[in-house]
């Protein structure tokens, strides 16, 4: 289909972009545009103006803080850059996994992490990673800046807590040394998006799971943590029984009606897969040697 008419602006700076956003009601930001443009072609979204920030410099860094406790990633870092980053791989492998599994090479080379998270597509991979890592978004408006925690970010299908007149400048991820994480994805055979995606993050002392974060994307209308699974894991010994018991809880904290149902997979099947894939994702990151 043809998109509706829209105006196109290229921003010179973050401030310029913010000014353009405030001058043009309903304008949308684009960087890679891999999320928004397809929806404009299908008529799902028709912004009157696009503000292109794809060429802004200085927003694509991937770096650790000096004390090694936080990982900062610029909003314009591409999925390919994140997937290839040794730092991300070592400190937040669930995000490297998610970025590597996202779309195809073209999308990974053009699409950016900030755009992806602000777009709020519940079928996409990075949301589960950000939730599992308990990361946050750094957001700027014309007059202020703020931080949005991952757990507050996703409000519904294509709806996030990022306001229309704000720009995501980066993401921040707390990191610690004795954590393991990973992302397991089951691709929708049509779209390549996640039919079910599970991100897991565990802090262990080698025998006991001290802290757990498990998050889902794709299967549900909004990406979300799975607290019942986390509760079942925390404080438990790393055993097959623990994993089995925890995975069995995968479906129960998801609200009624929150599982997606479409031509490819019913809600019931997605719920079943979520249990299976939670279990498999846990096995992916834990070495059980008995």
């Amino acid at each position: 289909m043809y998109t509706n008419d829209f105006e196109y602006y290229r921003a010179d700076s973050v401030d310029d972009a913010l000014t353009l956003l405030s001058d043009h009601a309903g304008a949308e930001l684009v960087a890679g545009a891999h999320g928004l443009l397809p929806r404009m072609k299908t008529g799902d979204e028709s912004p009157p103006a696009l503000v292109d920030i794809g060429q802004l410099r200085g927003l694509d860094m991937i770096e650790e803080d000096d004390d090694g406790t936080d990982l900062s990633i610029g909003a314009l870092a591409t999925h390919a850059e994140i997937a290839d980053s040794e730092t991300v791989r070592q400190r937040a492998s669930v995000l490297a996994d998610a970025a590597a599994e996202l779309g195809d090479p073209q999308v990974r080379n053009g699409g950016t992490i900030g755009g992806n998270l602000a777009h709020g597509d519940a079928r996409s991979d990075p949301p589960a990673a950000l939730l599992a890592l308990d990361g946050s978004l750094e957001v700027r408006g014309l007059d202020d800046k703020r931080t949005i925690d991952a757990t507050d970010l996703f409000e519904g299908p294509f709806e996030t807590a990022v306001a229309d007149d704000e720009i995501v400048t980066g993401i921040r991820i707390p990191t610690i040394d004795d954590a393991v994480s990973g992302y397991r994805k089951r691709r929708d055979p049509l779209s390549g998006y996640a039919l079910v995606g599970v991100g897991v993050w565990l802090r262990t002392d080698g025998e006991t799971i001290e802290e757990a974060r498990v998050a889902v994307t794709g299967a549900t209308t909004t990406p979300a943590r799975l607290p019942a699974v986390e509760d079942e894991l925390e404080g438990e010994a790393i055993t097959e029984d623990t994993i089995t018991a925890a995975s069995a809880k995968a479906g129960i904290t998801v609200d009624d009606g929150a599982f997606v149902s479409d031509v490819q997979a019913s809600a019931e099947y997605r719920e079943h897969l979520l249990t299976i894939d939670t279990e498999r994702a846990l096995y992916d990151v834990i070495d059980i040697s008995q």
Binding site: T42, P189, L190, S191, G192, D262, V263, Q264
Partner: peptide, 21 residues
């Protein structure tokens, strides 16, 4: 191809109708 209860083609786009990759 799937038609919905209204007789509308439900699989009308490339992300709704699965051509093998």
């Amino acid at each position: 191809a799937v038609y919905d209860d209204n007789g509308h083609l439900q699989t009308r786009r490339m992300d709704e109708y699965a051509v093998p990759h």
